[in-house]
């Protein structure tokens, strides 16, 4: 989704993706459920460290938090939605393209 926009803002300018709490993540005993669930390839595996990573953060659907539901150890967190909404709004306000929408 890197080339895509969301609410008028390029996806890669929106800081929305899961954050793994490694103190809680147990790698689902080698079969990470979030990795299996997410169809967008957001998650990956660091083969060297044998741990879960957020491999493609910009593939994450903005404001989707569904992977949390399959995470038994509750190791996945997300940014604050109001804060991200604020960033989206500010980015749009500073964009030339959205000038007409402001006037």
């Amino acid at each position: 989704m890197t080339e895509e926009t969301y609410m008028g803002v390029p996806r890669n300018k929106i800081p929305w993706c899961p954050v793994v709490d490694y103190a809680k993540c147990n790698f689902c005993e080698g079969d990470p459920q979030c990795l299996k669930f997410c169809p967008h390839g957001v998650f990956g595996i660091d083969e060297k460290e044998k741990k879960l990573i957020v491999a493609h953060p910009d593939n994450c659907v903005v404001f989707c938090r569904s992977c949390r539901v399959v995470c038994a150890p509750e190791a996945l967190g997300f940014p604050s939605k109001p804060e991200v909404l604020n960033i989206i709004k500010k980015t749009r306000e500073n964009s030339e393209q959205w000038k007409t929408a402001r006037s």
Partner: peptide, 8 residues
């Protein structure tokens, strides 16, 4: 539709 922007 998962925001409508979902590649799915």
């Amino acid at each position: 539709v998962c925001t409508g922007k979902c590649p799915g």
